[in-house]
Design a protein around this nucleic acid. Structure first.
Lengths: 222, 222
DNA sequence: AATCCCATTTTGGGATACCAGGATTGTGCC
DNA sequence: GGCACAATCCTGGTATCCCAAAATGGGATT
């Protein structure tokens, strides 16, 4: 594997895990020493991450992409038509084995699982459902949306009951796909997205001060 | 403007205009002499274009992204939920001035206009409609989809009557938005996407041989 | 104490040097 | 003529240089 891809993946992980704060400045020279590579592969990784909008230019500088919590509504608005379409297509196209695969993934995440596990499964579920649609464009769009959502979901928002609730909703959606009931699956998917967004916004509103301190842009958050 | 962005834009244009054939190999050294810059900015441009999927790795080499005509169905499937959502949101949110702007764009493209003009307006219309939705994620997704579609649309497919037909359909969609009739607008938008896809597929089926010669992947085209 | 100014440092953008690996070509043997 | 093999060339990957511009910092001036 090329050095550039290694650096890309590591940096990506550091950003998504909030190891690097949103808005934080990245200098090529610092990354150079941090990853023990020359600037060439680092620059390639940065350009690539810029394409994923995980890193951005600020004048001549590189910064970790800030999080704009105002995007949360637009993101839900974007996901609803796509994910409802995805579950409908999944009903028509997914094999029993494909569905069982997703089911296993959900089962693997029990109550005692670590926070990171819930976070990952909560993201992957939506991507895997999109994959059941058989449409690669839907998959990529959903994957991108979940990436953008990823960091916001780290906030202490995901309390135990909140996780359980999301897990139940995922189960319901998958159940309707399994039962080949596209209308119900679509309805549940839309409701899940809306409710998740509301849970997130509600929790965030209780902690604006703390958010700002962590580099989150609260502007536009109603 | 940085040299990298210039090279990026020029190369992008050459690819989208089919000046560089789909599947054609690109060597960094050839680009170096072609654009009179060193490999550093060229490399950055390539990495960026790779993110837009206009360029791709083939083993260790760079190639212009081939066109997979089998994607046409998936692309329509992807666009329909997004664009119907977009026109509905446009009905609710777009100002009269915004709508007038799009109308002007359509008007500017008369019968006698050059081929390139029709091509550009046909693409931009959909992006501009998406913009009226006010949702940046929808805009980006549609813009990306239209980019992927862009090269296929250059094929001799767009005969005079075909262009006129598309133009009329665009007009109808915009008319319904203007009349604030979201259901009709959504219905027309979906129909337009389906019909455009069918027109394209129909024309392509008549000329498979010619397509292969031009580097189009006919695999998966029914 | 605040502010202006200039020397110094640091930064990213670009050019170039070097390398390893893969393709290609040429060659000599059968 | 055909095939095995070696020398060669060319490629992208990486490291390093150089440069101009922007940031920095500290001291003189008010």
């Amino acid at each position: 594997m090329s050095q550039m891809l290694q650096i890309h993946d590591q940096l990506r992980e550091m950003i998504l895990s909030l190891d690097l704060g949103p808005g934080e400045r990245l200098t090529e020279r610092w990354l150079e020493s941090r990853f023990e590579g020359s600037r060439t592969p680092i620059r390639a990784a940065l350009v690539r991450l810029e394409g994923e909008e995980l890193v951005r230019r600020d004048g001549r500088n590189w910064i970790v992409a800030p999080i704009d919590l105002g995007e949360l509504e637009a993101l839900a608005e974007f996901r609803i038509p796509l994910e409802t379409t995805a579950v409908r297509l999944a009903c028509a196209r997914a094999s029993a084995a494909d569905i069982a695969g997703v089911e296993e993934m959900l089962d693997a995440c029990q109550s005692g699982a670590p926070r990171e596990e819930w976070h990952r499964v909560g993201t992957d579920f939506h991507v895997e459902i999109a994959r059941l649609s058989g449409n690669p464009f839907i998959v990529k769009a959903i994957a991108g949306a979940m990436t953008r959502l990823s960091r916001a979901r780290w906030l202490e928002v995901w309390t135990e009951p909140s996780r359980e609730q999301a897990w139940r909703e995922h189960r319901r959606i998958l159940g309707f796909i399994k039962a080949n009931d596209p209308d119900s699956a679509a309805r549940e998917a839309a409701a899940h997205i809306t409710e998740t967004r509301d849970r997130l916004l509600h929790s965030l509103n209780e902690d604006r001060r703390g958010l700002r301190a962590r580099g989150f842009a609260v502007i536009g958050l109603r």
